[in-house]
């Protein structure tokens, strides 16, 4: 009996976006099929992982997450180098958490100086995240754009309330932007239209649809990603044909379940393995929903996910 594979006709294609610059450019996107559906389309650039670096020594991380970075915490340059040299990071995601007005409220120029140092210290593409405070991010990310002119950083989140100011600055200094909206396909599309109206070039936009952790709203993010991806490929919705980033490590590592020790919750098993698997499985789910870039923390979770991407990129024999 011959099996005729019921194929889906994909009329659309995800745009290819070059990240970073020079010899170290990494291209993401370019898919012409649903994630890993290699029997009916192509995925020329397998998903990539950006390793998190923080601008300050983390205060509230469980030891299991801090342990790999204990020697570099508080020194973002050393931290970023360790990610590249020791853990082979393909890309770095600098989280400017200390700029949060509810935290240290680090001023914009200081944050820009830190970012500049990190961007000078590593060659790989650099993502820079503000604290998601609309007004503060405007100041911080504008300063970052200026300080790192021409480096094609990927900066965000650009939200409804600040996309104009940051977007315009990003174009001026030749950076890529992450358009961030709260788990809603229509809002995501709307912001991409607005960025287009602002003349942000199409090869400078990444969609950040917001990602929660496994057990903490992941189902909403998963479905929004699947809808964005199918709308882009099947309905040919041109303003959704951008690569998707999933920034979930910070959500995963603050959940109760990664913090409980095995003593406190024996049925939850080994605390370290549990945290690693919650992070890695969150990644596994969003990969299958359509994420192109994952922002991750634990080196062992990253290794598991890298292996998973490799395995899914092989159609294989049974």
């Amino acid at each position: 009996m011959t099996i005729e594979i019921p194929k889906i006709a994909y009329a659309g294609k995800i745009k290819e976006i070059p990240l970073g610059r020079g010899e170290n450019i990494i291209t993401v996107g370019g898919e012409s099929c649903c994630p890993f559906h290699l029997f009916e389309g192509a995925m020329p650039h397998p998903p990539k992982i950006a390793m998190e670096v923080y601008d300050r020594a983390p205060e509230d991380w469980p030891d299991t997450a801090l342990e790999p970075f204990a020697d570099v915490a508080g020194d973002p340059v050393a931290w970023a180098r360790k990610c590249v040299d020791t853990y082979g990071a393909e890309m770095i995601a600098l989280q400017l958490a200390s700029t949060d007005p509810n935290a240290e409220d680090t001023p914009a120029d200081e944050a820009a100086a830190i970012t500049k140092k990190v961007s000078d210290a590593v060659e790989v593409p650099l993502f820079v995240f503000g604290s998601s405070s609309v007004d503060k991010d405007t100041e911080v990310l504008k300063a970052v754009c200026e300080a790192c002119e021409g480096k094609n950083l990927i900066i965000g989140p650009l939200a409804e309330g600040n996309y104009r100011a940051i977007g315009a600055t990003a174009i001026g200094y030749q950076h890529t932007v992450m358009a961030s909206t709260p788990i809603d396909i229509n809002l995501a599309k709307q912001l991409n239209i607005l960025l287009g109206n602002l003349n942000v070039p199409d090869d400078k936009i990444i969609i950040d649809p917001t990602t929660g952790a496994l057990g903490y709203g992941l189902e909403y993010c998963y479905s929004v990603m699947e809808r964005i991806r199918t709308a882009a490929l099947v309905q040919e919705d041109e303003r959704l044909q951008f690569p998707i980033i999933a920034n979930f490590a910070k959500e995963v590592w603050k959940t109760k379940e990664v913090r409980l020790s095995e003593m406190e919750a024996p049925l939850l098993g080994d605390q370290k393995k549990r945290g690693i698997l919650i992070e890695a499985m969150t990644a596994q789910c969003v990969l299958l929903a359509g994420a192109d870039i994952l922002v991750m923390r634990h080196p062992e979770a990253i290794n598991l996910v890298k292996e998973s991407i490799q395995d899914l990129m092989i159609r294989g024999e049974s």
Binding site: L214, L218, L267, L268, G269, R274, I278, Q284
Partner: peptide, 17 residues
């Protein structure tokens, strides 16, 4: 094992909600 079956059950709950 708790550290693997718990996240798997969470994933299953999320996807099947």
């Amino acid at each position: 094992e708790g550290h693997s079956i718990f996240p798997l059950l969470l994933a299953s709950m999320n996807i099947f909600t």
